[in-house]
């Protein structure tokens, strides 16, 4: 296929949009890992809960309410999950954490299948986000007729806003300062009289809430069936590894890198299937801690 400017633009947009959903899921995953040191394999299941909640609320009460309700519900769910289960595994080896969260993911997936069935539930895009954008009207360098779905561009914007908000929270607020200090040395924070456990609980809730945001905006793209969570978990986890465990910036760069790689290799099935693993291998060989991984994390 000729790589015209039109085609190149479509490749880039598709890469950005595929990367956006990876970034949104990986962001929560890496935030939880960076602060709590927990490898949360149930994170895909949190996304799954979010899309089922979002589609149910959307179909019954409209998209606006889904947007308002789903992220806070996921926040509460995340807090309950942390208090009820995850905190008991803080001092256990990573293998135990992986086993328990993976088990939890399967339980959640099967529960949702039991309630909603294995078949897809159609998630309609709200009317204001439906349709396509005539890119050639806005980008004069394009030749002729080039379009892209509005919703996917909205997804990219949502991803950018969410990433910016999380960065701002961690770098511009006192809460963020405490969290970052806790990430360096949780014990010292305890000695200084800071209830770091309570803050970590909030971080877990935040990670879960980001999965909620991803579910509301990603649901119409990935659609709503019980397998979606697991399908997204592996690439998202690889994004975290490539970016560097616990690094937010790394997750963003890696997410976009993976999205672009998938977009540009689309016509070649063999390469398309293995490209993310290939990239993972190459990056880990060159930079064993990932792109922006810090020394001493998960080593």
């Amino acid at each position: 296929m000729d790589m015209t400017l039109n085609a190149f633009t479509l490749y880039i947009l598709t890469g950005l949009q595929l990367g956006s959903i990876f970034v949104l899921i990986a962001l929560g995953l890496t935030l939880i890992f960076g602060t709590l040191g927990v490898v949360n394999f149930a994170h895909g299941a949190l996304y799954l809960i979010a899309i089922y909640l979002a589609v149910s609320i959307n179909n019954a009460l409209g998209f606006g309410l889904a947007l308002i309700l789903v992220p806070p519900i996921l926040f509460v769910f995340g807090v309950l999950m942390e208090r009820g289960l995850i905190q008991r595994f803080y001092d256990r080896p990573h293998t135990d954490q992986i086993l328990v969260t993976f088990g939890l993911a399967i339980v959640i997936q099967e529960l949702l299948k039991w309630v909603f069935g294995a078949n897809n539930i159609p998630f309609a895009i709200p009317s204001w986000g439906n349709g396509i954008l005539m890119l050639h009207d806005y980008l004069p360098f394009l030749d002729g007729f080039v379009v892209y779905p509005k919703w996917r561009l909205i997804l990219v914007v949502v991803s950018i806003v969410t990433v910016t908000a999380v960065f701002a929270l961690l770098h511009l607020t006192r809460f963020g300062l405490v969290i970052r200090a806790g990430m360096r040395d949780a014990e010292m924070m305890q000695f200084l009289g800071v209830n770091i456990n309570r803050r970590f609980m909030i971080v877990f809730g935040l990670g879960s809430m980001i999965a909620g945001i991803a579910g509301v905006f990603g649901g119409p793209v990935t659609q709503v069936s019980p397998e979606v969570g697991m399908h997204l978990l592996v690439p998202s986890f690889l994004v975290v590894v490539i970016g560097g465990m616990g690094s937010l910036g790394g997750a963003v760069i890696a997410g976009i890198l993976i999205g672009m790689a998938q977009s540009f290799t689309a016509p070649y099935i063999n390469l398309n299937t293995v490209i993310i693993y290939l990239i993972t291998v190459v990056i880990l060989l060159v930079r064993p801690r990932g792109l922006l991984g810090a020394k001493g994390v998960f080593e």
Binding site: M1, T4, N6, A7, L10, Y11, L13, T14, G15, Q17, L18, I21, V146, V147, P149, R152, V221, T222, Q223, E227, V228, H231, L232, Q262, S263, A266, P267, I269, N272, T273
Partner: peptide, 23 residues
């Protein structure tokens, strides 16, 4: 015009649909 094999576990087909748009 063309044929693209898509992996069975694909949930988002945008990268393949872009190719269709471009054909």
């Amino acid at each position: 015009e063309g044929n693209i094999m898509t992996p069975l576990k694909t949930t988002d087909f945008s990268q393949y649909l872009s190719q269709v748009l471009n054909s």
